[in-house]
């Protein structure tokens, strides 16, 4: 396997009865890349992502994530990836510190390591004053930034972000993307879904799923040229509306 390709997907398919939710998708993602995974609601993004993070068995095709097989090595995949979504983030009734300790523990970090990580993370996010407050009381934007940092606590090779910025205010949304840039700069691969088309522009490459298939995959610049569109929103509308 090519060491630079942290995700390798070939003809990956998932069927539910007669319905083909994901239809033979193929792509590779390199180390440190920010990969935007776009598509309309119901296009198959979530199903595809579930296969890649090892919680849904494909019907056919091949995929390796962080070097591990999505059929047989799902536990290894889970240890080597981070995951956050808008829906599942942190425990509201645990404090900031408790959440960090909990997730550090889940990933098998030593107490010493958890303490180090916890201090560094709280300082970096400027959460010193609220470190012992319940997460539920924090503004959404803070929660999402904390949640992203926690998803990186075990230094995963890849982090999967499922609509991480939905409903977040525009300033925090940008701070969030600066954190993504930083993680990618440090070599973490970022796999992200979003409905904000300006965010699609922040990605190194973008794929667009339509009815279970990947209908376009390239850099935002090339996609705009290919579809003669002024921005990614137009690219999306042209593709998804047919």
């Amino acid at each position: 396997m090519n060491n630079n390709k942290v995700i390798q997907v070939k003809s990956l398919t998932k069927m539910f009865g007669d319905f083909t939710a994901v239809d033979a998708i193929t792509f590779d993602i390199e180390k440190g890349e920010i990969f935007g995974f776009l598509g309309a609601n119901g296009a198959g993004k979530t199903t595809a992502m579930k296969m890649l993070i090892g919680i849904s068995k494909p019907t056919s095709g091949e995929a390796k994530v962080a070097g591990f097989d999505v059929y047989k090595q799902t536990e290894d995949i889970k240890k080597n990836i981070g995951y956050m979504s808008q829906k599942f983030a942190l425990y509201d009734d645990l404090t900031v510190k408790e959440n960090i300790t909990f997730f550090g523990g889940i990933y098998g970090l030593s107490r010493k390591k958890i303490k180090e990580k916890s201090e560094a993370l709280i300082e970096e996010l400027g959460l010193e004053k609220v470190a012992n407050q319940l997460v539920g009381a924090l503004p959404l934007g803070w929660k999402q930034k904390l949640s992203f940092s926690v998803s990186l606590i075990h230094d995963p090779k890849i982090v999967f972000l499922d609509e991480p910025t939905g409903g977040v205010d525009p300033i925090t949304r940008r701070q969030f993307w600066e954190m993504i840039y930083k993680a990618a700069h440090q070599g973490t691969t970022v796999f992200v879904t979003t409905h904000y088309m300006d965010e699609a522009e922040y990605c190194d490459r973008v794929s667009i799923m339509v009815n279970g298939k990947i209908e376009a995959l390239d850099t935002p610049k090339k996609l705009k040229e290919q579809f003669k569109a002024a921005n990614m929103n137009d690219v999306f509308l042209k593709l998804a509306r047919g």
């Binding site: 309309a40 609601n41 939905g166 409903g167 999306f236 509308l237």
Partner: peptide, 12 residues
């Protein structure tokens, strides 16, 4: 917030 979490096509 009728369009939160809705894709750009459906939003339009």
């Amino acid at each position: 917030e009728p369009t939160t979490g809705v894709d750009p096509v459906s939003r339009k």
